[in-house]
Design a protein around this nucleic acid. Structure first.
Length: 234
DNA sequence: GCATTAATTGGTC
DNA sequence: GACCAATTAATGC
């Protein structure tokens, strides 16, 4: 428990739900009750089916949340970074986590217990309202994802993912600022490692992307966008 | 440096 | 488009 590095007042995640409502007097007492800790790269901190232990906020780092299928195949449900929240599904309704969560790199997490969350939700309407908007938005995204997996072919799904992580995590020195294994890309796109590699190889041949180790850089955003544009009716 | 793990390619069903 | 096998690259210890 290294609390020093995760005090909300000095936190720079302006989009964090807690940080956003920190100006409210009531929030101050709740912030004191949170627990911060570091989750090492590729370590799991939420186990599917385990009892819910509150809500996690990512202070610094990146996290993937997954759902496991019957045959051991994983489906990556969500990729999250600084200021995002993890483990909110089934909150209040379910006693157990419906998803698993892994750190994609060394990640500082802030945890609020069930009790603290309940108190906040019941006593800070501004927070509850913001969270509701967030839920609505997430639901919309997840419905879009269902549609994508249903209607897009593998190549389109991989392209869609590349554009997504490019938008979400940004690109530095021509490389997308996140490290995902080919397997993880496959888990997200709902296909296999080999398929992903084949799509990446052909995209590379077409000079639409480049790869350095497991890192990927996008070279021709508009061209990639045009390939999946028919699936995007916002 | 060796051993394990991940990436890649080619082939079969 | 999934699964398997062989080779090569990368990474951990």
């Amino acid at each position: 428990m290294k609390d020093e590095q995760a005090i909300c007042y000095t936190c720079e995640n302006e989009n964090c739900f807690i940080k956003k409502h920190l100006h409210l007097e009531q929030m101050k007492q709740y912030v004191q009750k949170k627990h911060s800790f570091v989750c090492k790269k590729s370590q799991q901190f939420i186990i599917e089916g385990a009892p819910i232990q509150g809500l996690y906020f990512i202070c610094k780092g990146k996290v993937k949340t997954v759902k496991t299928g019957i045959n051991g195949r994983e489906q990556i449900v969500r990729l999250t970074k600084n200021g995002d929240t993890v483990g909110f599904r089934g909150f209040g309704t379910s006693k157990r986590y419906l998803i698993g969560a892994y750190a994609l790199e060394d990640t500082v997490l802030c945890n609020f217990s069930n009790e603290t969350m309940m108190e906040i939700l019941q006593n800070v309407p501004e927070f509850t309202y913001a969270l509701m908007l967030f839920y609505a938005d997430e639901l919309n995204k997840s419905e879009n994802n269902i549609r994508k997996i249903a209607h897009m072919n593998v190549r389109e799904r991989v392209i869609d993912l590349l554009l997504y992580i490019h938008r979400k995590f940004g690109q530095i020195n021509g490389l997308i600022e996140i490290e995902l294994s080919r397997k993880e890309i496959a888990d997200f796109a709902g296909t296999t490692e080999e398929q992903v590699i084949r799509v990446l190889s052909s995209l590379k041949k077409e000079e639409l992307i480049k790869t350095v180790g497991k890192r990927i850089g996008i070279l021709a955003i508009p061209k990639l966008q045009s390939e999946i544009i028919e699936h995007k009716y916002f």
